[in-house]
C-alpha cells in the first residue's frame, strides 16, 4: 500500500464527465475511422460517417470545455491532498515536478526502484496530457480538410495544397489516429498497472485511501485510510 490517497478533489466531477466523453468519443472515432478507412463489413458507412463527424465535433467541443473549465474549477494539483488550486495548474509545470523527468524515466525503465515523488501528474504524464489538446486540434483540422464541404474552405484547402492533396492529408489524419491509439494504450496501461484505484476514481469518482502528501513541504506526511481521520 504505497500509493498516495485518491481524493475527489484531484478529479472534480465535471472532469470525470469530460473524461468519459473523451473516452467514448475517441473510441468511437477510432472505430468509425477504421471503418471509413476501409469498410471491413457492409452496411455501416452512412452511420459510421455520421458518428465520425458528430463525435469529432463533440470531441473538439469537449476539449474546449475542458480547457475553459480548467481555468475556473479548482482541483488538487497534487495527489494525496485535498488542497485545491486552479485546475490548469495540474497541467502546467509545478514545483513538485522539478528535476523529476529523469527520475520518472529511470523508474519506468526499472533503473530506479522507488516511485518518484511528485505532483498529481508525473513529468512524462504531464507532457503527454498537455499534448492531447493540440493533437485533438490537429486531427480535427485534418478531418475538416477531408470533409468535402469544409475541404474547400480557405485554411483547409490551403493545408491540402501544402501537403500535396487529400490523399496525403488522409495519411496524416490516419497517422494521428495511431498516435491516439498508442497514447490510449500507454495511458490505460500506466493508469491501471499499479492497481485499479486511479481508474475507479476517474470513472466512478470513488475515493481511495493512501499516503498523504503535503503541497507545502512537497513531501509525504502521512497516511489516510479514509476512516474519516487525517494524520
Amino acid at each position: 500500500m504505497a500509493h498516495l490517497a485518491h481524493y475527489r478533489q484531484a478529479h472534480p466531477l465535471p472532469f470525470v464527465i469530460t473524461h468519459w466523453i473523451n473516452l467514448i468519443c475517441i473510441l468511437v472515432l477510432i472505430f468509425t475511422g477504421f471503418y471509413i478507412h476501409f469498410p471491413y463489413f457492409s452496411g455501416f458507412m452512412g452511420v459510421a460517417r455520421g458518428l465520425h463527424l458528430g463525435l469529432g465535433y463533440l470531441l473538439v467541443i469537449n476539449c474546449a470545455v475542458r480547457i475553459i473549465l480548467s481555468l475556473f474549477i479548482k482541483s488538487a494539483p497534487t495527489a494525496g491532498s485535498r488542497e485545491v488550486d486552479r485546475d490548469i495548474k495540474s497541467f502546467l509545470p509545478q514545483k513538485d515536478n522539478r528535476h523529476q523527468f529523469g527520475a520518472w524515466i529511470k523508474y519506468y525503465l526499472f533503473i530506479k526502484k522507488e516511485h518518484p515523488l511528485g505532483a498529481k501528474y508525473g513529468v512524462p504524464q504531464k507532457l503527454a496530457y498537455a499534448a492531447i489538446p493540440f493533437l485533438i486540434l490537429l486531427v480535427a483540422f485534418t478531418g475538416l480538410c477531408l470533409y468535402a464541404p469544409t475541404s474547400v474552405v480557405g485554411p483547409f484547402a490551403a493545408f491540402n495544397g501544402l501537403v500535396g492533396g487529400v490523399m496525403v492529408t488522409r495519411i496524416i489524419h490516419y497517422c494521428i489516429m495511431w498516435v491516439f491509439i498508442i497514447f490510449i494504450a500507454l495511458h490505460a496501461y500506466l493508469a491501471t498497472i499499479e492497481g485499479l484505484a486511479p481508474a475507479k476514481m476517474m470513472f466512478g469518482w470513488k475515493e481511495h485511501g493512501g499516503l498523504v502528501y503535503s503541497p507545502e513541504t512537497h513531501t509525504i506526511i502521512g497516511e489516510d485510510d479514509l476512516d474519516g481521520k487525517d494524520h
Binding site: 504505497a2 500509493h3 523529476q100 522507488e114 516511485h115 515523488l117 498497472i193 499499479e194 492497481g195 509525504i220
Partner: peptide, 11 residues
Amino acid sequence: TKGGADFESER
C-alpha cells in the same frame, strides 16, 4: 502491480 513501488523518501 500491487499499488506500485514504494515512494522515494527524498528526491
